[in-house]
Design a protein around this nucleic acid. Structure first.
Lengths: 282, 282
DNA sequence: AGCAGCGATACCGCACGGGTATCGACGGCC
DNA sequence: GGCCGTCGATACCCGTGCGGTATCGCTGCT
């Protein structure tokens, strides 16, 4: 199977609409239709069920969508990593580190500082990601290493080392009734009438239903909290970077969050290994 | 990048010879040369250093070879798994389990037996592999689940659960001087003059240098041992399947071997989950 | 010097990918 | 209920690009 065919299929499977998929791919609809039926014929498998009004995935199609995405990521990763290896061989080596925007900033600062002091250290580019974005960057080769947060992020398929485990706190607007408390339970936060939990976009860009405001970034959310429109649950270490118009209260029964450093399996680059070793010594 | 280009590159990178690579790919040499230079031009990276007498990999080429192999495996896996999902949807579901030929046979028998007794169990096809072959089968989708043996097999990139940890024994021909011993040290086995360690083929089919006989299969090796031409180091559980012309002596300082059950990340198939659960209950 | 081995280049033909035009089927609507 | 709009499939055409053969150019060996 060619990656072109796979890209076409993934587009159609995601859009469930040949016209829109063709548009997204920058091509006309008929060749796309033909390419998909060719793919089905060659594989000997029906991937899409087309009634004249709608397109749905078969079982096999759902599997190919999932596996195909990771396969495309792997191809992309091969390409990127080879190009970056060429740069490195030309003396312009660098490490790309992906981390969730606004999380673990203290740990990250310490890590970058400690690594910079290492004898053989090289430039580290930090990529600030939205939630769930880091795994993708790691899988498609745009990042060499990432800070992930269990249990929120998926770590399967990567090598990981644990760096830090901490509890979680509720971040509230200063002056709110709950801020007088010394600790809280999760159940008390489930539906605080005036402070709903924010809604983050799903990978496809749509938002889940709910009462909370839609947010795209951390700074946006912090602003909403200080306006008294939302609350947030975040790891203890977030406390150090809060403005004084925000108050953090420990949550006694929240699941612990473990910050891990993750990298793609079989990554044999010397600088990445140095960085990981430095992180473990913190 | 198209998988066709990647397949071409991997062939050349493995052969380090355009003519042989072209032959292996079933095509003529000139189009292959052209395809590779096109790939290099499009990537903006030199992958191969050609002096007129030899072809060598650049740094970037080495990275692309490694990453490209796993990318090709991922594409192949997507294809296979989709086809198998179609079969499953048609009621002909099955699980392919890969295991090292001659290893863990007792555990495997128990597992198959226990799983067959499960209420929702389906057919399990067992694939007996040469050393190091299972990881490949798991990565390219020809197997759904595998029994691997740490620290010999590479488990990174898979999800794993530990099943059994055991010591190792030396397997010797009956009547050999060492068989009178109740235990042995690894150092004593390093160079027993008349019983060298066998040499297994590398993934590319060639053999490492050394005094031992070249072997391709477990039964071949067992035969060589009973002929007094080799010895073998194997997990304790191998004892149950030895003929009486072979004797196993415990090695006190050999690293422990852990048999794990491994499966590809994000595998969401019900039957595989059942099988794993059964294995953990043994 | 001559030859053999090997990768690169030149040139050619055809298959296939992509485009436009159009069809056919189904749903919605006044 | 007839008409239209939507959407995927089909028919047909064209150009690109892939693969083939022939040949060159370089280099190391004898």
């Amino acid at each position: 199977m060619e990656t072109r065919e796979l890209r076409y299929f993934v587009a159609v499977a995601e859009e469930l609409h040949f016209g829109r998929a063709a548009q997204r791919l920058g091509m006309a609809q008929p060749p796309l239709s033909r390419a998909i039926s060719q793919l089905e014929r060659r594989m000997g498998v029906v991937l899409l069920e087309r009634t004249n009004r709608s397109v749905t995935l078969t079982e096999a199609g759902a599997v190919l969508l999932q596996e195909g995405r990771t396969a495309l990521d792997a191809v992309e990763a091969a390409e990127h990593r080879a190009q970056r290896a060429a740069l490195a061989a030309a003396g312009r080596a660098s490490i790309v580190l992906a981390t969730k925007a606004g999380a673990s900033s203290e740990l990250l600062a310490k890590l970058l500082h400690a690594y910079a002091a290492e004898p053989r250290s090289i430039q580290v580019d930090v990529l600030l990601c939205g939630p769930g974005e880091q795994e993708r960057l790691l899988r498609n080769g745009r990042a060499d290493v990432a800070l992930l947060h269990r249990p929120f992020d998926e770590t399967t398929g990567f090598e990981v080392e644990e760096l830090l485990t901490e509890g979680q706190m509720a971040v509230l607007p200063a002056g709110h009734a709950l801020t007088v408390r010394t600790d809280l339970h999760l159940s008390e936060l489930a539906d605080v009438p005036d402070l709903p939990m924010p809604r983050w976009p799903r990978p496809d860009g749509s938002y889940p239903d709910g009462p909370g405001p839609e947010v795209q970034s951390h700074s946006q959310l912090l602003q909403l909290i200080s306006l008294g429109r939302a609350l947030m649950v975040a790891p203890d270490s977030c406390r150090s970077q809060l403005h004084d118009d925000l108050v953090a209260v420990p949550i006694v029964d929240a699941p612990e969050v473990t910050t891990v450093i993750a990298w793609p399996p079989h990554s044999r680059s010397r600088p990445v290994a140095d960085l990981i070793r430095t992180a473990l010594r913190l």
